[in-house]
Design a protein around this nucleic acid. Structure first.
Lengths: 112, 112
DNA sequence: CCCATGCGGCTTGTTTATGGGCCATTTGCC
DNA sequence: GGCAAATGGCCCATAAACAAGCCGCATGGG
C-alpha cells in the first residue's frame, strides 16, 4: 500500500526549484560543459545532475548547491567572496535571539 | 568496507547551506514558532527540520525550500509574487539555447 | 547527409535519508 | 526556584535517493 503521496510542495517551492534548475542548466550550456563534465566535477552521477536541472525536489541540497557553485549560479544573489562574511554576521545575530520559543497562547490568538 | 567518504562539499556550498539554515532558524524564532509547528506545516519530521536548520547537505532540497517558504525566507532575494514571472522568463530563454553542447576541443585547449 | 556525441530515460542494487519514538538537557515564563 | 515546554540527540525500521550501466533518440558539426 503506497501511502498518501507526499504532501505536495507549495507552488512557490516548486517554482523556485524549477527556476534554480533552469538557471543551472543555462549556466552549464553557456559554459559549454557536458552533463558528464559537470557531474564528474561535482562528484555526483549524471542522472542526478539531470534531476537537478529538472528541479526535482528530492535531490540532496548539498549536491544542488555544489553544482550551482560549479557552473557559477550565485546562491544568494551574492558574490562568492562575500558569503563567509555574511555567514559570520548571521551567526552573530543568532546568538542574540532566544534559543527556544515559548508557546504563543494559541497560534494567532489575538481575539481580545 | 566503507568507501571513501563523500567527496566533501566546497566551502562555498557549506557556507551557503549554513547561512540558509541560520536564516530559517532566525525566521522561525522571530515568528515564535516551535520546531514542531513548522515541521508539521511543512509535512516533515521535527528531526529533519533540525538538520535543515543545522545546514545538513543531505536534506532534500524540496523540504528545505518548503520550510524556507513557510517561515518566510526569500529563496532568490525575490518576492514570492515575482517568482512565477521570473520562471516564465527563464523558461523562454532556455528555448533559445542549444539543447546540447558540443565537445570543446579539449577542456580549455587554446594553445594555438 | 553522415557521424560522433550529448542527452534523457529506464532498471537494478546499494547507500542514505526520513519518520517516529524516546530520553536528557536547556530554556524561559510564572 | 520551580515547571512545563522546547530543543537536541540517538536508535531503529522503512522509504527513498543515488550510482552505474544500458538503451535509443536527438543534435549539431564536418
Amino acid at each position: 500500500m503506497p501511502k498518501v503521496l507526499s504532501p505536495a510542495l507549495s507552488k512557490y517551492s516548486r517554482d523556485a526549484l524549477s527556476l534554480l534548475g533552469a538557471l543551472i542548466r543555462e549556466a552549464r550550456l553557456t559554459s559549454t560543459l557536458t552533463t558528464t563534465e559537470v557531474s564528474t566535477r561535482a562528484g555526483i552521477s549524471r542522472g542526478l545532475l539531470q534531476r537537478i536541472e529538472r528541479g526535482d525536489p528530492g535531490c540532496g541540497i548539498g549536491a544542488v548547491f555544489e553544482v550551482a557553485a560549479i557552473v557559477g549560479v550565485p546562491l544568494f544573489e551574492m558574490d562568492e567572496r562575500l558569503l563567509p562574511a555574511r555567514l559570520a554576521r548571521q551567526t552573530e545575530k543568532m546568538a542574540l535571539l532566544p534559543k527556544s520559543v515559548r508557546a504563543p497562547r494559541t497560534a494567532v490568538n489575538d481575539d481580545f
